[in-house]
């Protein structure tokens, strides 16, 4: 059996709040295979975003390990190529147009050539924004911005995409379109997906649906 794209083992994370120590994650284990889509649901404050940050290597666990393709290297240098991220608030750079925002992911890897530009344009076409390539984020709707963010997450051909409530700022119809697009693009690129969502219907569309309750991850 091939190495999982993501392997999290016995992750524990706590935060200090005044004198109290809040245990947010307790021995969380998660394996995601190549091309697999996994959703994580949970109430607000259940630790979904914390888990995502640990998975993405943006934060360090108190204990436990995160492996990307069997390697413990989850540093910034590897993150650019291995992992794509999608956020609730899109986080596009306002001074860059849609095409430049997509290309930013590749620039951080240090390689911009004609092929990269073609891929960025192709991804914008895949998310239905061919004709908006030179529009600034301020000239795009919320759904369009999130599509640009999807294209950016896929730009470097990552093994894994982590999406933190990507429909949280969108209306239901646009949210559905974005999730369909995300799942479709990940499937066609054989990219694994970890989707954090409140929406049960969105979670149902993933291959595996998990729930985070009181810091512990359970299957459903």
């Amino acid at each position: 059996m091939s190495e999982p794209v993501l392997s999290a083992r016995a992750l524990r994370k706590s935060f200090r709040s005044g004198d109290a120590l809040l245990q947010v994650l307790r021995d969380v284990n998660l394996d995601v295979a190549a091309g697999e889509s996994v959703s994580i649901r949970g109430e607000s404050g259940s630790g979904k975003s914390t888990l995502l940050n640990l998975i993405a290597g943006l934060d360090a666990p108190d204990s436990g390990t995160v492996l990307w393709g069997g390697s413990p290297d989850t540093g910034a240098g590897r993150r650019a190529a291995y992992l794509g991220m999608v956020f609730q608030s899109f986080y596009l750079v306002p001074e860059l147009d849609a095409l430049a925002n997509v290309l930013l992911a590749r620039r951080i890897l240090g390689r911009i050539d004609a092929a990269a530009r073609d891929r960025a344009r192709s991804l914008l076409g895949d998310v239905g924004l061919s004709d908006r390539a030179h529009h600034l984020p301020s000239q795009l709707s919320g759904g369009e911005r999130q599509r640009v963010a999807l294209a950016r997450a896929l730009m470097n051909g990552p093994n894994l995409i982590v999406a933190d409530e990507p429909t949280g700022n969108l209306d239901e119809r646009t949210g559905n379109e974005v999730v369909e697009l995300l799942l479709g693009l990940c499937a066609s690129a054989d990219t694994a997906l970890v989707l954090v969502t409140h929406n049960a219907s969105h979670a149902a569309k993933t291959r595996r649906s998990l729930t985070l309750t009181a810091g512990a991850l359970g299957g459903s």
Binding site: A76, G77, A81, F87, Y91, I108
Partner: peptide
């Protein structure tokens, strides 16, 4: 938040 994004995309400090 943009600076945070750059880190999330793999930008070094």
């Amino acid at each position: 938040r943009e600076i945070g994004l750059l880190g999330a995309l793999g930008g070094r400090p």
